[in-house]
Amino acid sequence: MARISVLDDDVSLSEPTLVEGFPGVGLVGKIATDHMIDEHEMVHYANVHCDGLPRVAVYHEDDSAVTAPVRLYADPERDLVALRSDVPVHPNAATEVANCLDSWFDETETFPVFLSGLGREKGEEPPALYGIATGDGGDALSRAAVDDPSESGLVSGPTGAMIAAALERGRDAVGLIVESDPKFPDPEAARILIRDGIDPIAGTETPTDGLVDQATEIRDAKQQLAEQMRQATEESSQAEPLKMFQ
């Protein structure tokens, strides 16, 4: 049964901005979302129980309590919600998960910010960031001075399914696409996502220097999940260019 199970009824939100962190290329969405949850000391607000999500239980160090693999964290002061996912979503389940979350977006009048990595080999220049939008989401991109895409492309996985659902329903939403390491976790690309995309759109100020300083630690912590992504890249959310023959 699809539902969002609220754990803290004292949390009050009014048309919140949601930052989505399903794992994908470079784990940029997950790294950025996890970092924002930690930096803003966001509270565990709800568990996500959607048809299509893996039926697994998650536990953490020094805590015997288990929790759901996909969770929502909230910062009522900033009217901010972050989706933290500890599991990839199978492509066959992406639409079910998108529809489940879309119902909650309706109920809470949420403005979603979807995150995706575009696989690029690392170079000397900082990774480029692009924005896409549905409904009137383009206004938020303009205010944040996020560039338009420099090439045609598509977004797949659960992130792509949620953007497609927003398009179908005429929902205001934005997608942020950042060039990311296609093989390893990329905290630098996650930093660009936060600094140049999420913060200007959500009106937040998130310290990000630690992301680069802790790149080695983050890489070690995420390595197992990155390996899962490499073995089943079709299950991850990612952006990719459209080839000429498509």
Rank of each mutant, 00 (worst) to 15 (best):
D9F: 10
D10A: 12
D10F: 09
D10C: 03
V11K: 05
L13P: 01
S14Q: 12
S14V: 10
E15G: 09
P16V: 04
T17V: 14
T17Q: 06
L18C: 11
V19R: 02
E20G: 01
E20V: 12
G24W: 09
G26Y: 12
G26K: 05
L27G: 03
G29W: 05
A32L: 02
T33A: 06
D34C: 03
H35E: 15
M36E: 06
I37V: 13
D38E: 15
D38T: 11
H40W: 15
E41V: 04
M42F: 11
H44G: 04
Y45S: 01
A46Q: 05
A46Y: 11
N47H: 14
V48Q: 03
H49W: 13
H49P: 01
C50K: 04
D51E: 15
L53C: 01
R55T: 08
V56F: 10
V56I: 13
A57L: 11
V58S: 02
H60K: 08
H60S: 07
E61F: 14
A65L: 10
A65M: 08
V66T: 15
V66C: 06
V66E: 14
T67H: 11
D75R: 04
D75Q: 06
P76M: 13
L80S: 02
A82F: 10
L83P: 02
D86Q: 07
V87M: 04
V87E: 10
P88Y: 15
V89A: 07
P91I: 10
N92R: 09
A93G: 00
A93T: 00
A94M: 06
A94D: 13
E96Q: 14
E96G: 02
V97E: 08
A98I: 08
C100K: 01
L101K: 00
L101V: 05
L101Y: 11
D102I: 02
D102Y: 15
S103V: 07
S103I: 06
S103L: 11
W104H: 14
F105Y: 15
E107A: 01
T108R: 09
T108I: 05
T108S: 09
V113E: 06
F114N: 02
F114L: 08
L115Q: 07
S116Q: 00
G117H: 07
L118D: 05
E121M: 08
K122Q: 15
E125A: 13
A128C: 02
L129C: 03
Y130H: 10
Y130L: 05
G131K: 03
G135D: 04
D136V: 07
G138T: 02
A144P: 02
A144Q: 05
A145I: 01
A145R: 13
V146R: 01
V146C: 01
D147T: 05
D147W: 09
P149A: 11
P149L: 11
S150E: 15
S150D: 15
S152G: 09
G153C: 06
L154G: 07
